[in-house]
Design a protein around this nucleic acid. Structure first.
Lengths: 176, 176
DNA sequence: TACATTAGTAAGTGATTACTCACTTTTGAT
DNA sequence: ATCAAAAGTGAGTAATCACTTACTAATGTA
């Protein structure tokens, strides 16, 4: 990948996340990346293709982190690893995560295109197995609740100051 | 308010919620509402003014529900009322709620404009008092956790089928 | 060194955007 | 009935949109 290509990707990520996809024009991206607008279409075909590239680049890190958690040994560690995930992801790549959150609300086509499928599915199954192993009475409901708590963390943590983030995560961990 | 004015508002709500604000053109709204495009600007000054009107109309119902919960007697009822809130709001006005969720991700100006301030603040204080009254060891953290759970419910419930929604809400209530 | 491929540019394209303006129709109070 | 204010229209406006085209510069390989 060329320097300019990488610059386009990083600028697009930043603008898509901060200003919204439909609110970010290709000319704005080109200007900020100090590149001719035509180059964007040379490399990424169209605006959606650019978004595709941005998302698939960012998704890699996310999947890597999930695999790491899933490979842990004890059920306790798995649950705790799960609760910490939003905090870790946010620390690692806050901009990409904001983009990820926003995709659902841009347009029906985009929402459909990036509907988080396989990783979320795997997470669900892993948690079900873990809660069963832990001997919980209603493992399915426990999974749903934890998925929901973690999902909520993803959208609420960005607005909290660093120390409160850690506090909240530790408090939730203490409940499991 | 005239019939056409109401039609504009309802069509705008629907389109803003389903397709996103910047992705919905005023001409599209006019067409779907069977109204001349100029009329939108007569009544609402500009596109942002239209969004203002849509939001302030929808917010009323939301505030009414909060007041109702706050006026409950026992702390137990208040906490349960809180947990049920996303379910009730979603049942009452799912389209408006989708719009509300999306506003954060449209553009910095819009996110700033509709940053949910007063009602959320009041909710925080009410829960703090309630958890203190219930004699919890860390009422502030309990508040933050519950606010976060309820916030998560707001964004996750829409994707669940009706029966699972109720199940999840009841399960969370059973933990309090 | 020759040459094909890729990277990159600048100036366009038609379509669509939010918004305005000059105008007509409807309404409600006297 | 009169008439001003409000409701409503439809054809504009300049600016911006995603995208294309015709071109040059750089690069790697034989």
């Amino acid at each position: 990948m060329t320097e300019k290509q990488e610059k386009i990707l990083s600028v697009a990520l930043k603008l898509f996340a901060e200003e919204g996809f439909s609110n970010t024009s290709t000319s704005k991206i080109a200007k900020e990346a100090k590149v001719s607008e035509g180059l964007i279409f040379k490399h990424f075909k169209n605006k959606t293709g650019l978004l595709d590239a941005v998302v698939s680049q960012g998704t890699k890190g996310f999947e890597r982190m999930f695999e790491e958690i899933a490979s842990k040994k004890s059920p306790q560690e798995i649950v705790w690893g799960f609760i910490e995930m939003p905090y870790q992801i946010l620390k690692k790549d806050p901009t990409f995560w904001k983009l990820q959150l926003s995709l659902k609300y841009q347009s029906p086509e985009i929402a459909e295109r990036y509907k988080n499928s396989s990783t979320l599915q795997k997470a669900h199954e892993l948690l079900n197995a873990t809660f069963t192993e832990l001997g919980r009475e209603q493992p399915v409901m426990e999974t749903q609740l934890l998925m929901q708590i973690v999902g909520g963390l993803f959208s609420s943590l960005p607005e909290l100051p660093e120390n409160e983030r850690q506090q909240l995560v530790e408090f939730i961990k203490s409940k499991y």
